[in-house]
Design a protein around this nucleic acid. Sequence first.
DNA 1: TGACTTAGATGCATCATGCATTTATCTTCC
DNA 2: GGAAGATAAATGCATGATGCATCTAAGTCA
Lengths: 253, 253
Amino acid sequence: MSHGDKQPKRSREERDFLAAYDASAFPHPSVAVDVALITVEDAELRVLLIQRDEHPDLGRWSLPGGFIQLDEALDAAAARVLARDAGVTDVWLEQLYTFGEPDRDPRTRVITVAHHALVPAATLRRGTEERSDRRLARIVVPWKGDRGEPVRAIDEDDVELPLAFDHAAILGTVVQRLRGKLDYAALGFELLPKRFTLRELQEVHEAVLGRRLNKDSFRRRILASGLVTATGQKEADVVHRPAELFRFVRRRR
Amino acid sequence: MSHGDKQPKRSREERDFLAAYDASAFPHPSVAVDVALITVEDAELRVLLIQRDEHPDLGRWSLPGGFIQLDEALDAAAARVLARDAGVTDVWLEQLYTFGEPDRDPRTRVITVAHHALVPAATLRRGTEERSDRRLARIVVPWKGDRGEPVRAIDEDDVELPLAFDHAAILGTVVQRLRGKLDYAALGFELLPKRFTLRELQEVHEAVLGRRLNKDSFRRRILASGLVTATGQKEADVVHRPAELFRFVRRRR
DNA sequence: TGACTTAGATGCATCATGCATTTATCTTCC
DNA sequence: GGAAGATAAATGCATGATGCATCTAAGTCA
């Protein structure tokens, strides 16, 4: 996102106004960020959840999140929360949508700027030590297409994890947005290691979209896009003909 | 957007926690909404701008906006601002993106949840009395595609209107989003009167996309979509063969 | 009445997609 | 060592969408 128009020169009068400005003259809401850290493992869409150890919604599962600091940009707050709670840095991270229903948090008015982040499963497993209050939960999407309605989270033992606040709705919006962006943005690569086969890329796309894709058409489309290039290497340890390994090529503008 | 998970039953302990919660324990930013009210007139994308009569950025042109109230949903605040400053209600209105760079407002930390609204030009001209501090400015997009970089605003006398705060960047994001949604969302109809010709619809699409479209392909695609239906009426007062008037049909789910 | 303009239909070449078929290349089992 | 089983990867073809050219229709205006 592009910000930072150069500041105009300010008059003496305007500087006086700014010096006298009292921001506390009217009530302010709390502003937080929540981050849905998404990965694909075993051809299924997953998200990192943390069990709340405080009221409200104690015991329920939530996205990593926290209140923003007054001198901190929104994406910087999201990156901070992600590093603190998930131990990951330098991942694809984008603002998603801002949730601000007056009653979404029982404490007080909390507006949350939801973000989503993508990371390869291998990176996440490496960074996330096993803690009982963390789960890489499967996202179960009870709708087709781009409706964006709430989703459910299921852990590895097929137990549903009750979600805190409106995080089921936030995750529904995450899935909706990812499905919408997958076609024209190079998202799939963010979920894969540096080298990958076209089948792995297709499985990632299918996990995000929640439907099967035609293999030949997918291959032709990806190869024609110029987004991948063959490495000359082949995958190993498979019980069939090994596929060629590709890597992502940043698109020329 | 789907919110409002039914609230879980709260324990006595949790209710005590909530009663004792002190939201003022840490500093809060200000939260505002800004609304880009977009229309298409003379095959050009336009936006309603208001000249600021207060510091900061006095004299510069800004989107309608205002601080949110503590008991008010974000889209309700956007609708309130739109009714107050533009006199329009019941228009297509959607959240766009949240802008929160720490220095985007010189007064204090102001995070703004930007929205965009679409309205037919005829409706807007009817609702907007002529005021010297209002302009329906042309949006000049100095980039192609979906880059989303800042844009410029030009009034009817070809005078550039300097934009307040980061509103040039907000408007750039508006154009980016509209271009992205136009294909798969029924946006064009929001910018047209109830009955319209396919040429008018195409001109709206071209104004949003900033490029010419193939006429035959556009006609076939729209007619095949099932989103429009012929009314049997024809346009009047044109110096050539009159085109059939169509109306929008809400898509069956 | 004819010039002018745009609407709207038709035909065709091109390209993307879905599907079936064939061959290639690996592991595992006998 | 060879056959079975799996998937990779290429090829061919039918189908549908798109871009483009052409032709006719239906208005206004001089």
